[in-house]
Design a protein around this nucleic acid. Structure first.
Length: 270
DNA sequence: AGGCGTACCTGAGGGC
DNA sequence: TGCCCTCAGGTACGCC
């Protein structure tokens, strides 16, 4: 489900709803989604207070008063839903339920059971393999360009590799490449300086615009309040096969790259 | 080292 | 109706 803009929207919602609250208990209904194993997870998280909630790549990072962090990856269909004290209807497919001192609850729900919730120690280097944050000052053109050098992998596959640039998924990879007028299959290292410039700019532009719209709800993504995003109404190529390119009018085509659906305009993306 | 295929899951939607 | 197939915001792992 969620890529950087969706995870950012969820993290902001959780920060607003949960900062300062104390976790009184955790109910783990599907043990495989937590680590450490269930009994340790429940024992260690009980009594913790939430300092703040942020994001790293596609991970939601809940910072706890002890210095530990609760690191959540939503994968395809995971949700983090805040239920205020008065909420009566349960969130379907809830795998973990955190209860707070004031009656608020946080449901970690996931139909497909891919999402994971991990409690990590203060010094644990859990993000060692996570790449550059595309909306941070670290994401300079020169650093981005350096990552592309010598890579023969298709540029779209490169963009999906979380170890290089973190947070881009299938939707925003397709959108950024369309905006930069670059063919998704072009070898990453073969891009000219001009194309690299366009792509560096389009990655930031598309992610910022999507955050402004509170993410993309193609199917069932919702934020921490259970609300859908709005960027699905502004997609240029993703899932638009058969429809006209918004630049040149030619038909958008769907291909497959690295086992993922890939949408592009064969006329203006070269 | 890096690229590729498969596995992990459930559900929605289309074709017949 | 209903069965069967494909596809879905993602990553981990094993194999070459």
């Amino acid at each position: 489900m969620p890529e950087l803009p969706e995870v950012e929207t969820i993290a902001r919602g959780l920060q607003k709803a949960l900062a300062g609250k104390q976790i009184v208990s955790a109910e783990v209904r599907l043990p495989k989604v937590v680590s450490p194993e269930r009994s340790r997870f429940m024992a260690e998280i009980a009594g913790e207070t939430i300092d703040s909630v942020g994001r790293r790549g596609k991970f939601v990072v809940v910072s706890l008063a002890s210095g530990r962090s609760l690191v959540v990856h939503l994968r395809m269909t995971g949700r983090l839903i805040v239920q205020t004290a008065g909420t009566t209807n349960p969130e379907p497919y809830t795998n973990v339920l955190l209860a707070f001192g004031d009656g608020t609850r946080l449901a970690f729900a996931d139909v497909r059971q891919f999402g994971r919730m991990r409690l990590v120690g203060p010094e644990e280097p859990w993000a060692a393999e996570v790449g550059l944050e595309p909306l941070s000052d670290d994401f300079t053109f020169e650093r981005f360009s350096g990552l592309l050098d010598g890579r023969s992998t298709p540029i779209k596959v490169f963009l999906l590799d979380q170890r290089r640039v973190a947070g881009i998924g299938n939707i925003y990879a397709c959108e950024a490449l369309w905006e930069a007028k670059i063919h998704p299959g072009r070898p990453a290292g073969s891009l000219s300086r001009e194309r690299r410039r366009r792509l560096h700019a389009s990655i930031q532009s598309v992610l910022r615009r999507a955050i402004d719209q509170r993410g993309t709800s193609v199917d069932d993504y919702v934020d921490a309040e259970g609300l859908r995003g709005g960027f699905q109404n502004q997609l240029s190529v993703y899932s638009r096969d058969g429809q006209g390119c918004l630049r040149c009018g030619r038909s958008i085509v769907r291909t497959v790259l690295a086992q993922r659906g890939t949408w592009s305009c064969r006329t203006c993306q070269r």
